[in-house]
Design a protein around this nucleic acid. Structure first.
Length: 196
DNA sequence: TTATGGATCTTCT
DNA sequence: GAAGATCCATAAA
């Protein structure tokens, strides 16, 4: 499969805009000479203002510093001591905002994803933010890298952009929980929760 | 089918 | 010292 990488321009725009534009795009992971990939089907926006669920709400810290890097940087963090989550950083340098990738539809090299996940069930390979990191072997060594200019982790153009976008409240947070900043592809069976 | 608790550790208070 | 952008196994209904 040939991948048409998204370059730096793609990431210019508001965080909500980028969140919606990321749906249907392909997340590509290269390990040695093998490509693993999946279509993005569910995302959440985390803003720099009036969003107390965002890691950036308390200002710059050692953990969240990638969120303040330029749009198109990766932000990978450890949650609950055991799981990694992957975000696409948005907005200009110095502004802390990002889009959490919550679910993928597996495409290339599903066999390798299954072995990283330790399951044969394709439906639970990448239908959650920590699951997709495990399936693509995304860890903190990939935090803070430029997605528009990296070989091991990048984004690519998707083929079919014919889908309807659903917009709901975000999952698993306790602050700013009523903001409608979750977006997912209507009808896609790899969405993590509340599928239509 | 829904509810609950354990795993496990970095970050900030 | 407590909380956290999750997942999974197990128990209850």
């Amino acid at each position: 499969m040939k991948y048409n990488r998204l370059d730096r321009d793609f990431f210019e725009g508001s965080t909500e805009e980028i969140a919606k534009k990321l749906l249907g795009k392909i997340l590509v992971r290269k390990i040695d000479s093998q490509f693993l990939s999946g279509k993005i089907v569910e995302v959440e926006a985390y803003l720099n203002e009036n969003d107390f669920a965002s890691h950036s709400a308390g200002g710059l810290s050692q953990r969240n510093k990638s969120m303040f890097m330029p749009a198109g940087t990766s932000y990978v963090y450890l949650i609950y001591g055991i799981h990694y989550c992957f975000n696409v950083v948005t907005e200009k340098e110095g502004i802390g905002a990002a889009v959490l990738i919550r679910a993928l539809e597996p495409l290339d090299n599903i066999a390798l994803m299954k072995s990283f996940r330790g399951t044969d069930n394709i439906k639970i390979l990448t239908n959650g933010p920590a699951k997709l990191c495990q399936a693509l072997n995304i860890k903190r060594n990939l935090d803070g890298i430029p997605l528009y200019n990296s070989r091991e982790l990048f984004l690519a153009e998707g083929d079919n952009q014919n889908f309807e976008i659903m917009n709901t409240k975000r999952i698993g947070i306790s602050k700013s929980k009523d903001l409608l900043l979750r977006y997912f592809i209507k009808g896609n069976e790899f969405v993590s929760k509340g599928k239509i």
